[in-house]
């Protein structure tokens, strides 16, 4: 089960570019407790150290919108200015900022203004 771009045998080739591989098809569930299975066929890559679970940025960002990713953790400590108190405001702000950033940071284009 050597993924197309995710096994570490050949150091010059095995660093996948963002968004180029390993996206799990939408809705493909992972069977709980059986992580060696490869639903969708591309999430898992074999490396010399064993099987590794690899996700690219795009896939992780897509997971952010799933319902299970939005509920606050039950054990979130209350740290003023860090995790509290205005969770709703933070949500709105995060989404706003994220949306703005996504527009400018897709693909491989330069993310920084250079004025050195």
């Amino acid at each position: 089960m050597s993924g197309r771009c995710c096994h570490g045998q050949t150091p010059s080739r095995d660093i996948p570019g963002p968004g180029k591989c390993l996206a799990l098809p939408d809705g493909a569930p992972l069977p709980p407790g059986d992580y060696s299975t490869t639903p969708g066929g591309t999430v898992f890559g074999t490396t010399p150290g064993g099987t590794r679970i690899i996700y690219d940025r795009q896939f992780l960002m897509e997971c952010r919108n799933s319902p299970g990713a939005k509920t606050p953790p039950s054990n979130l400590p209350d740290i003023p200015g860090v995790t509290s108190p205005s969770v709703e405001e933070l949500k709105l702000e995060n989404h706003h900022v994220q949306n703005c950033e996504e527009k400018v940071s897709t693909g491989e284009e330069e993310q920084f203004d250079m004025d050195i």
């Binding site: 996700y55 992780l60 997971c63 952010r64 799933s66 299970g68 990713a69 939005k70 509920t71 606050p72 953790p73 054990n75 979130l76 400590p77 740290i79 200015g81 860090v82 995790t83 969770v87 933070l90 949500k91 995060n94």
Partner: peptide
């Protein structure tokens, strides 16, 4: 702040932190 084991659990923390 907390420990997570999945992508979804990560976002739950991250989205509720500044």
């Amino acid at each position: 702040i907390g420990t997570f084991a999945s992508v979804e659990q990560f976002w739950r923390f991250y989205s509720h932190m500044v």
